[in-house]
Design a protein around this nucleic acid. Structure first.
Lengths: 162, 162
DNA sequence: TTCTAATATCTTGACATCAAGATAAATATA
DNA sequence: TATATTTATCTTGATGTCAAGATATTAGAA
């Protein structure tokens, strides 16, 4: 009887006309995601980052050499608005982790480039981050984890069909 | 090949030493939850609410008669800080959907009570909300949905063990 | 060429949230 | 009783986010 079961039970008493089967799935998604975010946030905080700044640095790192993308590309990859990305980049520039480099071919645009300091930091953080994630899925057996991943993949495809 | 697969592939190229199996699960949780929140938010917006205000009204409604809880109880149920709850209540009071009623037995505390207007509103919204949630899980067969729910339940228990 | 449209990014103002601390009342202890 | 502690809620200041609009540049059409 977890927290979501309790909510479902209350609705069954108060509104027996409602079928809350879907609510159980959706509710558990929300709560699990909150726990995951909290746990991962602690790893980021150990290195002076948060989920937002980690996201930008990790996107640049995994894009490969020369570890540089335009703000527009970062916006697409991280699904935030332009204002949010400007703010994130400003902070990372202030921290010396990325640099805004002018694009000679298009004066409207910049390239956001990992500094050496930024590269070294993300290189270390991502290792810890992966360890944290592995610990988080330890509640499931390897077989269950595989099964869950397959179901998530199908579920996500429903939203991100192209 | 969904978005999460692409990220995993980039990491495999750039950092083949990292095992990103757990990252796939965690990443899909994040993306799915974002899609769920967006979709549900639209239903709330149709009634002038957002996820935060819906949450408070729904908590009061499903608590049963007399549809009233203290701020402290609402904080526990919704997992937000006291400042956030004060703000949410202020807005709902302004909108005439709840009322702050003084507690005679303990002058420190109030009871937050659904008004008739608030009751009528949440009564209608929750019906639409359940329909939205049902549509959201239609990407899975009933059997898959059951399977997923069981796995989520076990996963969540890992975080909310008591 | 000159005007218009599209593109790339930044700025502004508003909002929800949190952490930490303030206020006030109830309860426990001396 | 008087004082200290706990409890319940609100206030304040900072942060991250978004939507809408501003600015500047490039590309296309007349």
């Amino acid at each position: 009887m977890d927290h979501v079961d309790k909510i479902a039970k209350q609705w069954n008493t108060e509104r027996p006309d409602l079928d809350v089967g879907a609510m159980e799935i959706v509710g558990r998604f929300g709560r699990i995601t909150n726990h995951l975010r909290d746990a991962m946030g602690k790893t980021f905080a150990d290195y002076g980052l948060n989920g937002a700044s980690f996201d930008v640095l990790a996107t640049l790192r995994r894009s490969g050499q020369p570890y540089a993308l335009s703000p527009g590309e970062l916006i697409k990859a991280t699904m935030v608005t332009s204002g949010t990305m400007t703010n994130r980049i400003d902070q990372l520039v202030k921290a010396g982790l990325v640099a805004r480099v002018k694009n000679r071919e298009d004066a409207r645009s910049f390239v956001i480039s990992l500094t050496d300091k930024g590269f070294d930091l993300i290189e270390r953080v991502v290792g810890e981050h992966v360890k944290t994630q592995q610990k988080l899925v330890e509640g499931l057996t390897p077989d269950e984890a595989l099964q869950l991943n397959e179901l998530l993949k199908k579920f996500l495809a429903h939203f991100e069909a192209e």
